[in-house]
Design a protein around this nucleic acid. Structure first.
Lengths: 207, 207
DNA sequence: TAATCTGAACTAGACGTTTAGTTTAGTTAA
DNA sequence: TTAACTAAACTAAACGTCTAGTTCAGATTA
């Protein structure tokens, strides 16, 4: 079940930070219309164009109702944009850890570089913490799952260092990309992606 | 010479993205007063408290003049806060690459975790690109220099992998911290910092 | 005198809230 | 079966509040 088509209200549990919202057939239509309009606006003009007024105007859903379903503009945008990342990033299966990680980091790097909305959303979560759970659920969760799969394969093959946990491994390969994305001190080219992957896999110290 | 006490206007060159500004004795006073007031406001209430009106009111410098010296609020805040990072992060010298890097990453991690302004500034640069050069000059440059020193030592001792360039090494150790800082998916504790350092130094693959 | 700064008003735009009234889905009861 | 009812959900529009950045006449100072 994709999170994008799930409309059941959330009442506690692992995702308790995600706001509960009405769930009837009317609400489902409203929910979908809001997300669709938001995706269009994000594609056209980035996060800045997806103001709540613009979303309301285009979707035909009133502002008051939008705020019944989401806690903030950032949350709406994160849920709306979230699915696009997973769709754009197929899970590689090259037969080796080096191949798998290299391919995945290149893909993610290219996605970041060509989709400014990603950086805008991440930045928005800093000033609007209510958006963070949405960002994690609809954006990061898929990436972390993908890496977990690659990692387990590498462990099974005896290629991965079992002293490293998968969370640390994930952050080690994606962290540098995020850093560059945010501060802009280095480009996000495929060559740079490969250098990061090689350094992460091989380590900084001499063997 | 510290960047914080440098008041010469910038006319082209490596920092050409930094805006030129008036340089006489009056301007120097104005410049300093603005930065001092901004630092106070940042310390008291984070970036949100350092509005341009508040900076003008506290410093006695008018808004119009502030905008003669900096291109945006983000730029003022980045220059104002920049120096505090270097001051808080002494360069370690433990005698080994593992020791040096572990110490430095722990320090930086603690700084990020306790200084919300850092994340706020980084986020602000995404929506206000004119702030990025200031952030890089007054924030990142010092960190990159520090790592360059540690890295050169490690190379000289034969500990570091010479196939990795210092830029990649820097991003590999700090990237994961930045990533966690922005998305909040993992805490920035000393234990986590050590795990990141160990993974970065040793690599993800089995030896 | 000529560059620089002040002060204050002004523009433009956003978020999120509120209010008053309407629509809908579903349930009860005749 | 069908009519009436109810509670939840939605709409529309205005409102309050905040902020970044601009403009300009006049005072200050190097």
């Amino acid at each position: 079940m994709s999170p994008r088509t799930e409309h059941t209200a959330n009442r506690g549990g692992a995702d308790s930070e995600i706001q509960a919202h009405p769930t009837g057939p009317r609400s489902r239509r409203v929910h979908d219309a809001t997300l669709r309009a938001t995706r269009e606006l994000l594609a056209e003009g980035g996060l800045a164009a997806a103001t709540v007024d613009a979303i309301a105007a285009r979707s035909g859903v009133s502002k008051a109702t939008i705020y019944k379903h989401w806690p903030s503009r950032t949350a709406v945008a994160a849920e709306a944009f979230g699915g696009m990342m997973g769709d754009a990033l197929p899970l590689p299966d090259t037969g080796s850890a080096v191949g798998d990680f290299t391919a995945q980091v290149r893909q993610v790097s290219a996605f970041y570089a060509t989709q400014p909305v990603f950086a805008q959303l991440l930045a928005s979560c800093v000033t609007d913490p209510s958006g963070s759970p949405y960002f994690r659920k609809f954006f990061l969760a898929g990436r972390r799952e993908a890496i977990a799969t690659l990692w387990q394969r590498a462990i099974d093959r005896g290629e991965a260092n079992p002293d490293v946990d998968v969370e640390t491994a994930t952050d080690l390969v994606f962290g540098p990309l995020i850093f560059r994305l945010m501060s802009g001190h280095r480009p996000l080219t495929p060559e740079e992606a490969d250098k990061v992957t090689a350094a992460a896999l091989g380590g900084l110290l001499r063997k």
